[in-house]
């Protein structure tokens, strides 16, 4: 599994979604459940942290197709 801190918000969010589905299925071993639960919680925290730090980046596309901070 990927290092959680390197995941983008969308990646973390999607994995969290998948983990919830897996846990809901109830077909996991106890150890798998606990491992997934721990990871799910960390993913949720990671998502919240990304949201806390998010700052809108504003760029401009010029005529030549270059993107520069506005």
């Amino acid at each position: 599994m990927n290092n959680i801190n390197e995941l983008s918000f969308e990646q973390a969010y999607q994995e969290l979604d998948e983990i919830v589905s897996k846990l809901e299925s109830g077909e996991l071993t106890l150890e798998e459940s606990v491992t997934l639960f721990e990871r799910g919680r960390k993913l949720a925290e990671h998502c919240q942290a990304i949201l806390d730090q998010a700052e809108l980046r504003v760029n401009q596309l010029n005529d030549s197709g270059d993107i520069q901070p506005l």
């Binding site: 919830v20 846990l23 919680r41 949720a44 919240q48």
Partner: peptide, 16 residues
């Protein structure tokens, strides 16, 4: 996200 976290906890508790 808060709801999912709570949901995760209850799901695991139920399974345990």
């Amino acid at each position: 996200l808060r709801q999912v976290t709570t949901y995760l906890i209850t799901t695991l508790q139920t399974q345990l």
